[in-house]
Write a protein that binds this DNA or RNA. Structure first.
Length: 561
RNA sequence: UGGGGGAUCGUCUAAUGGUAGGACAGCGGACUCUGACUCCGCCAGUCUAGGUUCGAAUCCUAGUCCCCCAGCCA
């Protein structure tokens, strides 16, 4: 496991939903609570889903209840088996378990069909021949009531017959629907005779072509909850309007239980988008390399980028649960990731923008091994040996001509420390015709081996390095916000807010050899730079790393002033 | 303008009639073999107007602003 930071406390968190659960347990309404996470398998999970996952599974765990993973697979036109697999991988990776097997709304199709017939029998549902467009017209508007369909008063027998014939495929797609008979004048538009079943001839990922009529969300969700004995059905705010309909089905159908729906505010994150529709578009239009592109806010993207699952869980728990709709700053997530990685990530040295540094008074044929600590945040951390020699790679921006006083790095006549190695003093540089530094020259103090001078002399800065003769070459991919604007689409079309510089590929970086062994997806810290992990694209002869997140850089801030 | 929700530092939140507190961000400092980490300090908020009360973020009244709903999507 990669999760070394577990910030869970003894006491369970307090929010309006947990308070409700606690009260229902104390009053004896339930002695065992059941929640569920019900994704539609029409895309990959993103960090917004992670909030729902952490809430549903988290609450079940905290109160010794159970949480079902249930696929809401009621629309075969949009769903795919591949998504079913990816979703399970993501939920598992996030650290949650759903027992024997996942549930599927499609497992209840037969029951749902019988319940639809029950509704018809009660005079509470009817088959409508109106077209989709006509239904929309008859529905009325937000301020005007709707009008009754001419087919609203069909007899029970005729409705039963028509519905049965819908099922066996006598009618074309869209020709007829089954509707609930509720109230065409309701202020809540969901109650204006909502459609319950529609005809869709499209193979279903699980039921194949067994059906050509499918229940929609409203007719499947609450009933599925009831069948599974869900006690607390937690969903996002936009379903508040659906709750009266959810309850209407529970009241009018012979369901085995009475689940209750509670709504919480969905997660909005700055500088990205969190809607499956938009994420799908980013993938299908190749604005990103796929659902798991490390710039994507998907669970798989975050995983590929090197974000630990524990950091995601912690981030979610820090947000709390409320009904207010807000926009969380990306820096909040980044901070949480850094906090976890600072504890867990091993340190290594790597140079991303290399320039040669030559130590003039170091023997050309000499190599020595220096000891470097792997994780100073862990007092039990072990160490590793790093090869040192006359020619090193250092970071281009660790040298500056005519540097200001505050510049604690290489500049003529200034002494700095090479981390874990020696004090060196810059004696000069060579440049090409364009004025770019091609080589930095230094002298070193052999007495300072290991990084400290016996005379107690202090040095103002420490820079990282990699021995040129020993370095491994790698491609390193740096990521920035996917969107340049905090709220994509606020001022113009959301795609225009894409950040053109979200991906910065450095093809020739130099790493200390130990990094060749780095485990895919597990972040290590490149000292002074940030957290990085091996990408799945990486090969022994073509290493590829992703930057998970940079280190805080107060020098960069100071420099800009 | 029908129905349903929501408003507390820049951001996310706590306070359930009794000192408006925390975290992130920002700013300043200390420390440092990572300009990281850590530590210290500072900045900053109850949507508005009335009312009830010894006392109001919390209760009442009237406003204001924001979000969601007119799919045979979920």
């Amino acid at each position: 496991m990669t999760d070394t930071t577990n910030t869970t406390t003894d006491e369970t968190p307090h929010d309006f939903i947990r308070d409700r659960v606690r009260a229902d347990l104390e009053s004896g309404l339930h002695d065992h609570i059941v929640t569920r996470f019900p994704p539609e398998p029409n895309g990959f999970l993103h960090i917004g889903h992670a909030k729902s996952i952490c809430l549903n599974f988290g609450i079940a765990n905290e109160f010794s209840g159970t949480c079902n993973l249930r696929f809401d697979d009621t629309n075969p036109a949009k769903e795919d088996e591949a998504y079913i697999r990816a979703i399970q991988d993501d939920v598992r990776w996030l650290g949650f378990d759903w027992g024997d097997k996942p549930f599927y709304a499609s497992d209840y199709f037969e029951t749902l069909y019988a319940w639809a017939c029950h509704l018809i029998g009660e005079g509470l549902a009817y088959v409508d021949d109106l077209s989709a467009e006509q239904i929309r017209e008859y529905r009325g508007t937000l301020t005007e009531p709707g009008t009754h369909s001419p087919h609203r008063e069909r007899s029970v027998e005729e409705n039963l017959d028509l519905f049965a014939r819908m099922r066996v495929g006598e009618f074309e797609d869209g020709a007829r629907v089954l509707r609930a008979k509720i109230d065409m004048a309701s202020g809540n538009i969901n109650l204006r005779d909502p459609v319950l079943y529609r005809i869709i001839r499209h193979p279903h990922p699980r039921t194949g072509d067994a059906w050509c009529i499918y229940p929609n969300y409203d007719f499947a969700h609450g009933q599925s909850d009831a069948i599974e004995g869900v006690t607390h059905s937690l969903c996002t705010l936009e379903f508040e309007d659906h709750r009266p309909l959810y309850n209407w089905f529970l009241e009018n159908l012979p369901v085995p239980a009475q689940p209750r729906q509670y709504e919480f505010g969905r997660l909005n994150l700055g500088h990205t988008v969190l809607s499956k529709r938009r994420l799908l578009q980013l993938v299908s239009e190749n604005h990103v390399a796929g659902w798991d592109d490390p710039r994507m806010p998907t669970v798989s993207g975050l995983r590929r980028r090197g974000v630990p699952a524990a950091a995601i869980r912690d981030f979610i728990s820090r947000l709390g649960v409320t009904k207010a709709d807000g926009l969380v700053e990306m820096s909040y997530l980044e901070n949480t990731i850094r906090e976890h990685l600072n504890q867990s990530a091993e340190r290594r040295m790597a140079v991303l923008d290399p320039v040669k540094l030559v130590i003039e008074n170091y023997p050309a044929d000499q190599t020595e091994e220096l000891e470097a600590v792997n994780n100073p945040a862990d007092e039990n951390s072990d160490t590793r040996m790093v090869s040192f020699s006359r020619e090193l790679w250092v970071e281009r921006d660790d040298y500056m001509d005519d540097a200001p006083k505050k510049f604690r790095r290489l500049t003529i006549d200034q002494e700095v420390r090479l981390r874990f190695a020696y004090f060196v003093t810059c004696t000069g540089v060579t440049k090409d015709d364009a004025g770019n530094v091609t080589e930095i020259r230094c002298t070193y103090d052999p007495e300072s081996r290991g990084g400290d001078s016996p005379d107690g002399r202090k040095v103002r800065g420490t820079i990282h390095w990699v021995s040129a003769a020993h370095a491994k070459t790698a491609e390193v991919r740096l990521y920035d916000h996917l969107f340049a604007e905090e709220e994509p689409g606020k001022e113009r079309d959301w795609l225009e807010d894409l950040n053109p510089d979200s991906l910065d590929v450095r093809s020739t970086c130099y790493l200390e050899p130990a990094l060749q062994e780095a485990e895919t997806g597990i972040a290590v810290q490149f000292e002074r730079l940030g957290y990085f992990c091996t990408d799945p694209d990486s090969r022994p002869d073509g290493l590829v790393f992703n930057r998970t997140v940079g280190l805080r850089d107060s020098w960069a801030k100071a420099k800009d002033k």
